[in-house]
Design a protein around this nucleic acid. Sequence first.
DNA 1: TTGCTTGCAAAGGGTTTGCATAGGA
DNA 2: TCCTATGCAAACCCTTTGCAAGCAA
Lengths: 138, 138
Amino acid sequence: MPEPRHSRKTRQREAVLAELRKAKDHPTADQLYERVRKAIPRISLGTVYRNLELLAAVGAIRVVGSPGGRRYDGEMASHHHVRCTGCGRLDDVHMDVGLEMPRSARFSHNYELTGYQVEFLGLCPACVKNFSRPGRKT
Amino acid sequence: MPEPRHSRKTRQREAVLAELRKAKDHPTADQLYERVRKAIPRISLGTVYRNLELLAAVGAIRVVGSPGGRRYDGEMASHHHVRCTGCGRLDDVHMDVGLEMPRSARFSHNYELTGYQVEFLGLCPACVKNFSRPGRKT
DNA sequence: TTGCTTGCAAAGGGTTTGCATAGGA
DNA sequence: TCCTATGCAAACCCTTTGCAAGCAA
């Protein structure tokens, strides 16, 4: 696969990005596909995947790996996440956690650090309620 | 699938847990399978998966969801991770980041928070070296 | 016109499941 | 003995790819 030297502006690519930008949740590729399909019925799942990969590669969107499938995040402003350990629900946390980057080689493993992301863990309101029978992990 | 009421102690389960506890990396199910196979050649991949799921459910191990596959972590002491955005390499960061939990409902989305985990991002030494041609994302 | 993109469909790879048998309590 | 756990293989996702046609630049 020869790496493309220039990427083009296509309806499909713009639709995928637009849909992700306005999404309030963190959709999977398939969920995004269903949404984009309302505007471009003949778009294919493969195209959605290819565009998500490209958009992530150029840093236009974020990928959130989670057990149960990859999710995408269209909000680029620095923010963190809360994940429900009961049902897998994921929400944004807009808060300045004012965390300092590790500077010593011992802590950073000699990585060239560029940023960080905090994932808070807990139970969402729904799972707190059903605490005795929490939803299935996703 | 009737939820088992009591879990039993089996060679396979203990071997999976032991192997993961002594692992210094964050193996995938398949990598763990290969390692456990040295002790129990006839163990099946399915058994490894089932035990990993059970062990995670009872909180004996941690699951690290990442683009490119699920990984498992046998170290339960609180720690964080550094992920290379170039090649996907994952390392531990043992450091007290002294982060305070969000208390306001606005930030916590009414979650009952139990903990948090920081993921530092950056380039590992190898990818820094090949900066012009970073390895493939995993 | 060039060569990146798309649709479609098949291929891939990781994870889950059904079932008969083995084995822990 | 009772019920959970295992081995094996098939079934199931989700994601990636090959290819011919479509379409930005």
